[in-house]
Amino acid sequence: MANIVEITDLRKSYKDGFQALKGVNLGIEEGEILALLGPNGAGKTTLISTVCGITMPTSGTVTVGGHDILHDYRAARSMIGLVPQEINLEPFERVINTVRFSRGLFGKSSDDAAIEKVLRQLSLWDKKDNQIRELSGGMKRRVLIAKALAHDPRVLFLDEPTAGVDVELRKDMWQIVGKLKEDGVTIILTTHYIEEAEAIADRVGVIAHGELLLVEEKAKLMAHMGQKELEVQLTETLTEVPKNLRSEDLELSSDGHALIYTYDTNAERTGITKLLADVAAEGLVLRDVVTRQSSLEDIFVNLVKEDAA
């Protein structure tokens, strides 16, 4: 599928010399959900802000739908919707007016049917005449999304949409994102929550210290980089790994009841057969055998650790 957003060698340096983005290259496919993971200060928000026109890039190019964000900013920005990290809304304004205002800013006439559609989509229609200050935190987040969708964007940036919200609301938000994807909207979200990326993203990008460390399909990423653990539970308690079994991939569980073997699922030989044979030869009696797939979180932590090293 064609890329709707193309980011090439994007750099952003501030006056104090801090480099927020260090030559980011990224292509975002139309209709996908891309999750950008990264620790605080990694450059996630700077990347989004630059694409959306809030921050000026130091160098590099960004196109949205083939339109350069600097030279053809009207066409590029018309395609983008942005939901910021903070709940930034005028407290005394009414819901419908603030959504209408956002639509107008993007040059679209005040189409009542279109505004009603967006508000209904986000379960806000009943609250349309409420002042923003009267809404709950979750409802305010929905208003932010409604404002971002008011002009029917083809690309939606969600900057930590579920930061600080409860689990129920988070899952609610994931449903909204899923529906938007069904409608053909390309979604780029930044998040701290690995489970969020795991739950809804098609692809995952990991960003740290202003560099994009990788971008990979979520399933492939977990398959390629995922390590599996085999837990061999024993009937007896050990104080150390038996001498004949010692290897760097094998360790004893903290309670001494199990041997934990880490292996690569993609390796030609996983070593499981040999391990089980060696365990039997050592005279150890098995109680159970359990395998565990490493999570996206483990992969993320490893990547960021490697980058820091």
Partner: peptide, 17 residues
């Protein structure tokens, strides 16, 4: 100043205007 103060200024910067 008010959009700057409450943080809604981003809307103006990210709009095609």
């Amino acid at each position: 100043y008010f959009p700057k103060f409450i943080g809604t200024f981003f809307e103006l910067l990210s709009a095609p205007i």
